[in-house]
């Protein structure tokens, strides 16, 4: 190892914490000195105090639980729908050809504009947020599954057929595992999108959830609470991402290491 190699393990974690503290210190200095107006930029100490009070009083847990429930439901339903549709269209060229322009169109449309419609259809509860999340997750999973089925090596397919695989065996033992491996490698994006769907849905109209807290605070020009909400959301997103990384490492252990390393470095 050369002397210029990157520090490893615990030392790097320490550096990262120092970097975070430095960011907060700069923020603090800029707002305390009056270079940045506190009314618009808040104060890191008050933001942290607000976040701490949320957790101490337990008020935040209800909202976090709602946001998490919306995320999980949107991710689960979106993945199942995407998986089923992707498998079907990849194996049915006629249907795929018929629906191709519609799928491209639906994917190109910014789906956040559907939020008001979903609010009218499903009300201000969690259903409208789940629906928005599904429209975001569905296309990521769908395109990955479609690709996953198309990318199955023709030699592997011929080999399985020569070994006696029926059409059902091929679907179950070749197409589905190949497709799910592509779904797993897009887990980061799809879980992230489910989270975005939940929070944006809440922000556009809701009665509970972290997005709702931010919306309320913004209405009262309480910038510190807005930042506290963003801070909690970020920490939560990091936690979700970490869970995904651990899951992925387990599920994709059959992949060659270079690719495995690339995935876990994301």
């Amino acid at each position: 190892m050369s002397g210029r190699s990157t520090p490893s393990g615990p030392l790097m974690i320490l550096y990262r914490l120092v970097f975070l503290l430095a960011l907060f210190a700069i923020w603090h200095a800029l707002t305390e000195s009056g270079l940045l107006p506190r009314f618009f930029f808040g104060s890191p100490l008050l933001v942290l105090e607000k976040a701490a009070r949320w957790f101490a009083s337990g008020k935040i847990y209800k909202h976090l639980a709602i946001t998490l429930l919306e995320t999980v439901l949107a991710f689960g339903c979106g993945t199942l729908l995407g998986l089923a549709t992707g498998l079907w269209l990849a194996l049915a060229p006629a249907a795929s050809s018929l629906l191709d322009p519609y799928i491209k169109g639906a994917n190109a449309m910014p789906r956040v504009i559907l939020a008001p419609i979903f609010a009218v259809w499903f009300g201000l509860g969690i259903l409208s947020k789940v629906a928005l999340g599904i429209t975001l997750v569905f296309f990521i999973v769908f395109f990955n599954v479609y690709q996953g089925v198309k990318e199955v090596s023709p030699v592997v397919l011929s080999n399985a057929r020569m070994l006696g695989a029926t059409r059902r065996d091929l679907l179950r033992h070749i197409y589905l595992p190949s497709a799910t491996s592509w779904v797993f490698s897009s887990l980061h994006t799809s879980v992230g999108m489910a989270f975005v769907g939940a929070v944006v849905g809440e922000y556009l109209g809701s009665a509970a959830g972290v997005g709702y807290l931010i919306l309320q605070a913004e209405g009262a020009f309480d910038i510190n609470t807005v930042f506290a909400g963003i801070l909690v959301l970020t920490a939560f997103a990091l936690l979700l991402d970490w869970i995904v990384t651990v899951t992925e490492r387990h599920l994709l252990r059959w992949r060659p290491t270079s690719e495995g390393a690339r995935l876990s470095n994301r």
């Binding site: 090596s153 030699v155 592997v156 011929s158 080999n159 399985a160 070994l163 006696g164 695989a165 029926t166 065996d169 033992h173 070749i174 595992p177 190949s178 491996s181 059959w254 992949r255």
Partner: peptide, 22 residues
């Protein structure tokens, strides 16, 4: 086959057993 035809997400043992499974 000339090219690699093993199922990449199955272990060596499960690959050998694939035909029996089918």
């Amino acid at each position: 086959f000339q090219a690699d035809a093993l199922i990449p997400w199955r272990s060596a043992l499960d690959n050998i057993a694939a035909g029996l499974q089918f």
